[in-house]
């Protein structure tokens, strides 16, 4: 990639009011630094405390979702997860839009994740709360390294959320999750 392309990317992001973006391998260690910068940044906007917390909360859950579940991983035994993903936070009028994406290598995983998200999208606030509590109490699902409640947290804290799976035609898919916070 030449330098001009990087500049074009920069302009594209400015045009979309992107305040933060990251693309590459992600680790828990990196989250500490990015989260601290993001916190400083959103404090500048003097938002209501609740909105600020929700933005931060959805960001952490999205980030951890990539670090735990992206299928593009640097294998290094005994070391913490390092996985590839992409994240972008942008503003639009009074909303914050948080996007994250990562690769998923099996159709079964896509199917199960899609079912989970469709299910969450159809739930009312009360349903989400009850489901959240149920998941907090349940044993961690097999293949789930986190608490398994991150997606519910995202659904609860977002004003709206959307998702998509882009078929990469080689048996893998790119998963995208968009949260809008007002």
């Amino acid at each position: 990639m030449d330098a001009k392309t990087l500049f074009d990317m920069h302009r594209l992001m400015l045009g979309n009011e992107v305040i933060m973006t990251y693309s590459g391998y992600m680790s828990q260690g990196l989250l500490t630094s990015i989260a601290s910068v993001l916190k400083q940044q959103i404090e500048q906007d003097h938002l209501p405390k609740k909105v600020m917390r929700n933005i931060f909360s959805v960001f952490v859950e999205q980030y951890e979702n990539v670090v735990r579940y992206s299928d593009d991983q640097i294998e290094d035994e005994g070391k913490d997860d390092v996985r590839y993903g992409i994240m972008a936070i942008s503003k639009k009028e009074n909303s914050y839009i948080l996007n994250c994406g990562n690769i998923i290598k099996s159709e079964d995983k896509v199917k199960s994740l899609r079912e989970k998200l469709v299910n969450l999208k159809n739930m009312s606030e009360d349903d989400l709360k009850a489901f959240y509590k149920q998941k907090l109490r349940s044993e961690t699902e097999e293949g789930s390294k986190g608490a398994g409640v991150g997606l519910i947290e995202i659904a609860r804290k977002s004003s709206e959320f959307e998702f998509d799976f882009i078929d990469l035609k080689d048996g893998t898919s790119f998963f995208l999750l968009k949260s809008i916070l007002k």
Partner: peptide, 9 residues
């Protein structure tokens, strides 16, 4: 002040 979903568990 803040806790994530894993801490909620």
């Amino acid at each position: 002040l803040y806790f994530n979903s894993s801490s909620a568990k």
